[in-house]
């Protein structure tokens, strides 16, 4: 069960090599503490999604170990039942089911009683501001609203750890910024620990307590940057010098990493 002393996520030398010999991810050591928002930032092919999928239990590491709340991944209950939720790159809703039914799906699969499930679905929809759209079909919603439904679905199981794989990548910038704000609000309200994958430097700076910089060929962790927790996350922050300084440092780290990789190849 939930061991409060243990970090939310502990990655101990976990790596991924496919049977074809492709090294998707070199050994990673990383701890995510309770209540933290940690972003995995890097270009495509840097193994950030691979790492997230290993935390989710959807992929198993070829060597090393991944622990969530102190429990080794791949043993025990289904990930979602142990307080882990996943938000995918796209909304990934069932087109044939109404929003409410989509959000209720994890509870249905886990066998939660109908009445309790319905109450929790209403709560989750209210949390993301979609209570009026419970009876709509996904295709009737905008991209941002579909993503909100997807977030509501991930929150309905009352997770302690939220894993997000470039969830807002397909949205326009205005919608994305708004959803970033909503995510930070939800994180406070629900005392969530979040591991967030993105390739946007700005999103990483805005959301994170800590940014883990990764690079490709082969995928690995190259740097880490803490964002001062005292900074208020608001529109002023987005245009501040502080923000630009963080962004610059991340950009430099990414650039340095990719230059080194190219040199290594040459």
């Amino acid at each position: 069960m939930l061991t409060t002393a243990a970090p939310a996520v502990e990655i101990l030398g976990a790596e991924k090599t496919y049977s074809s010999g492709t090294r998707a991810l070199l050994p990673v050591n990383l701890a995510v503490h309770r209540g933290e928002v940690v972003t995995l930032l890097g270009p495509s092919g840097c193994g950030k999604s691979t790492l997230l999928n290993m935390i989710a239990g959807l992929l198993s590491p070829s060597a090393g170990e991944v622990r969530v709340w102190g429990n080794v991944r791949g043993t025990g209950a289904a990930p979602a039942a142990s307080g882990v939720s996943f938000v995918f790159q796209e909304a990934t809703l069932m087109p044939w089911a109404r929003v409410a039914a989509n959000v209720r799906l994890p509870l249905d699969l886990q066998g939660v009683a109908r009445e309790e499930a319905d109450a929790r679905v209403s709560d989750a929809l209210r949390l993301v501001g979609l209570e009026k759209f419970a009876q709509a079909y996904p295709r009737e919603l905008s991209g941002g609203m579909q993503m909100r439904s997807s977030i509501a679905r991930s929150l309905v199981t009352e997770p302690t750890l939220l894993l997000m794989d470039e969830p807002f990548g397909a949205l326009d910038e205005i919608t994305r910024n708004r959803l970033d704000d909503e995510l930070l609000r939800l994180r406070r309200q629900r005392d969530l620990t979040v591991v967030f994958v993105t390739h946007s430097i700005h999103e990483a700076v805005y959301l994170s307590d800590r940014v883990v910089v990764m690079t490709a060929r082969p995928g690995r962790v190259v740097d880490e940057l803490a964002i001062a927790p005292s900074v208020p996350r608001d529109d002023a922050f987005r245009v501040s010098t502080e923000f630009a300084t963080y962004a610059k440092r991340l950009q430099d780290a990414l650039l340095a990493a990719s230059t080194n990789a190219d040199e290594a190849l040459a």
Binding site: A81, F86, E90, P106
Partner: peptide, 14 residues
């Protein structure tokens, strides 16, 4: 079948 939905089902122990 949408592979994301397959993962979601798996994560929920379907």
């Amino acid at each position: 079948v949408n592979p994301g939905l397959v993962s979601l089902f798996r994560m929920n122990g379907a």
